[in-house]
Design a binder for these strands. Structure first.
Lengths: 237, 237
DNA sequence: ATTTTAATGTGTCATAAGTACATATTTATT
DNA sequence: AATAAATATGTACTTATGACACATTAAAAT
């Protein structure tokens, strides 16, 4: 029997419904945010001895009375107070040895958060935003999960207006471009970027300008209503 | 408690490791094949009373001692004798009511099979090939799973040389085009199709021609070696 | 041997999209 | 009034896409 399947009872108790004849199912969340011109991801200190000092993704076991796709919303709401968030399933990871405490298969989701809007109290919850580019390793197979989700995000931002979930409701084209550059980790040409975005017909011209700048202000735009999620309330925790 | 969670013990016994406090995890396979200019999918008569007379995908519970991604290979080998098959994970389905006998979350994979090469004895195993276009409904949420996998297949055939897994080792450009047309369920322009394929650099000119035709024969091509899976042995069952 | 059948093989033109690149304009500050 | 720092915008080149027609080949029929 594989080494990964040998575990102490103490560890085992940490995870309910976990034994060697029942596979446990969890969800893990790659929660992306954007701040200081960097793409960030929300991490928590791992609570397993094996990974002491290391960070991991937010996750939890799926409950028997909830839909799989509801679980990540529950985790997000209960751990961060965030509601009405963009979430998408990416991939399910299930190698035998991926969890040191037993057999746990996990479905990974990525979420996109407007950090400023949600006013997350990160430090009180042992949660911290990390620049994606600075993350070298994570607990479990979470670095692989992060990379997989990042790839999916990158492949989607020109197809669907998902990147707007990282931004406030009003933004200039410069801010939008900076978000795209942060996600793709590359510099973009301003004129070509604007052409590409313009042709998508995602933007609503708000007839407002930036203010309080020491240079020429840009026009402000919003995402067209038809692409927005219904509400934008953030629960206070 | 949800209706879907009420079940008779008789039904429950059919699925090992299945109860209401342990979610069971399965894999389901959308096995595509190509024959008679049609895209086919391999189905089996459902063994559940609720779905008597209906067809369903091949699937099985994931075993505690196998990787998630190994399970579909095991299912394919044990149920059809097929080995060395192209398989790709697509999505995980986990709504509460999706399985009438209890809580089963399933990870869907699609597989691509060269029907003629594998010489599957389908009838002896209650397995049957069905034209994808003729499938109106399936047991469980398998129609949804089929549609999701079909979409994924369609979005990948111009990106990666996956469609070749449906074909024999030698083929003419006409045959290749017919496979693409069957997958996309659309007619393609011959000249434009050849241009698009040519630029991918996937094809090896075999310097052979079709034979035994009552018209001008076409050149035969194969997929370039670098894109092929290692072996091509099919086990006899 | 010639004709017929049924397919293969190939190129051009028009339109759309992608990429590289430079100058005039606007606002606040000095 | 001049400066600093950004916005706004267009063109030329290349590449991809989509519509479309004709000469060629091999076998079969006459």
């Amino acid at each position: 029997m594989a080494k990964s399947l040998q575990l102490k009872t103490a560890e085992l108790e940490k995870i309910s419904h976990l034994d060697y004849f029942n596979i446990a199912l969890s969800v893990d969340l790659v929660i992306f945010g954007y701040e200081d011109k960097e793409l960030k991801v929300l991490l928590i200190k791992s609570d397993l001895e094996e990974f002491s000092g290391m960070y991991s993704l937010l996750g939890d076991l799926v409950r028997p009375d909830e839909d799989l796709d509801s679980a990540p919303y529950r985790v997000l709401l209960s751990r961060t107070g965030m509601d009405d968030v963009f979430l998408e399933q990416v991939h399910t990871f299930g190698s035998i040895g991926r969890h040191p405490s037993g057999r746990v298969i996990t479905t990974a989701y990525y979420a996109l958060i407007d950090i400023r809007h949600h006013q997350l109290q990160v430090d009180s919850n042992e949660l911290h935003w990390h620049a994606v580019n600075d993350i070298k390793k994570l607990a479990f197979d979470h670095k692989l999960i992060l990379n997989t989700c990042l790839e999916q995000l990158r492949s989607q931002i020109m197809e669907k207006p998902v990147a707007f979930n990282l931004m406030q409701d009003k933004f200039s084209l410069r801010e939008l471009q900076e978000v795209y550059e942060a996600i793709l980790d590359t510099k973009l040409d301003r004129r070509n970027f604007r052409k590409k975005i313009a042709v998508k017909d995602w933007l609503q011209d708000l007839n407002e300008m930036e203010s309080n700048l020491s240079h020429r202000p840009g026009k402000l735009y919003g995402l067209k209503k038809q692409f927005k999620r219904k509400s934008s309330k953030a629960l206070v925790i």
